[in-house]
Nucleic acid binder design. Structure first.
Lengths: 228, 228
DNA sequence: GTCTATATGCAGATAGAC
DNA sequence: GTCTATCTGCATATAGAC
């Protein structure tokens, strides 16, 4: 089960902005993420990815040592892009309630790429195979999300905007619910994600004892940094 | 993409209790569900299922016309068993708060089989293939769950136990969150599902304006009707 | 009902020409 | 960098003996 770990495109500092990155590799990663999120790892053939990207299947092995490496790179890229969104969220707000509200809205606007991310993480986690790199990517993702949320909640409590709830637990609650919304949307494509997330938002404010109408400065457009 | 629909083991009145059902077929369904939930459809080979069940791989084709039919039958069985649990839940309580509480607890106790169910539904839904039968099974599953919950909430409102929330939306909220708990547990196996679900329960009572400590008659053991 | 043997096809991966 | 050609193995599925 523990396959030999192959290398290439191992560089974690992805998307080195401005760097002369191979366009083909980027294109392949985008297509791969798209397909891996639609179907699952073993159902997606190298040929399908190549066809979709408009190249010969052999070329994939020029950029990535194996299908697994390609999968890993696609997942890493998706996580990093999502983390970048979180970072932008953080920088954009000087008010915890707005930040959290924006975080919910971001999940509505970016529902599609986030659904892909959830699906692909799920496939990996339940596949039985383990790779340190991927494990740590996923771990970091949830850690960052948890930190973003719990820090905001704590901050709101200090400002006396929120009830004195346990920040970590409340963060986990919100984060877990969002996973649920994504999962449900994957299972039932007809689901109105926005509606569900807004319902949750209401309940979450209720839990925090926060009245969103009181301090609303108009709904800012959520940050997009579109995945693929 | 639209494969010809094969038959055999087509009989939806599964588990006809008392009926002389082939033990081998049952065994195969159990093993199949187990494997399909661990990995994904295309990653699970017929041979693996056969090996695990201790029979020759050809035998599977004696009972099921194809791998897809086997998958479909396994999913159907899992859903029906879960629905049976819901039915037992319904019959066991004459108090909406207890019923809902028991519903949450059931998800803790039966986390493993329910995780399998969620995973397998997800795999199917995102596979791109469509089969009327499976679609309707999944649809029915969520419909029944929604009915169980919303009816209980409505009931509680009438009894003046709960706030006058929108029963359907509240039901969807709880149900979606549970999906999230299962998803998260699949992605991060170290997660303490019980803890997360109990947190949700608290928030849900809060939302319904219900104080669980007031009327607690001691925690009844949740219903099990173990999914293999 | 359960097995052995096998047909058939496609997937992942490599070698090497251009 | 990108392609053609090809090796190798395994997966689904079938035929047919017992």
């Amino acid at each position: 089960m523990t396959e030999p770990i192959k290398k290439k495109y191992r560089a974690s500092p992805f998307l080195r902005r401005g760097g002369a990155k191979p366009k083909r590799a980027e294109r392949l990663l985008t297509v791969a993420l798209e397909l891996f999120s639609k179907s699952d790892f073993s159902a997606v053939s190298i040929k399908k990815i190549a066809d979709e990207a408009g190249v010969n299947s052999s070329l994939i092995y020029y950029y990535f040592d194996s299908k697994e490496i390609l999968f890993q790179a696609a997942l890493e890229r998706a996580v990093l892009q999502t983390l970048q969104n979180y970072e932008m969220l953080r920088e954009r707000h000087n008010n915890p309630a707005e930040l959290i509200s924006d975080w919910f809205d971001t999940h509505i606007v970016l529902a599609e790429p986030i659904k892909k991310l959830v699906k692909i993480m799920l496939d990996y986690s339940t596949s039985g195979t383990q790779h340190e790199v991927i494990d740590s990517i996923i771990y970091q993702f949830y850690k960052e999300e948890s930190q973003l949320l719990s820090a905001s909640i704590e901050w709101g409590i200090k400002l006396d905007l929120f009830n004195a709830v346990d920040p970590l637990r409340a963060a986990r609650l919100a984060s877990t619910f969002l996973d649920g919304a994504m999962t449900r949307a994957l299972i039932m494509p007809t689901l109105d994600v926005a509606e569900v997330i807004n319902d949750l938002k209401d309940v979450f404010w209720e839990h925090l004892g926060y009245d969103p109408t009181s301090k609303s400065k108009g709904c800012q457009q959520p940050v997009h940094h579109l995945l693929s």
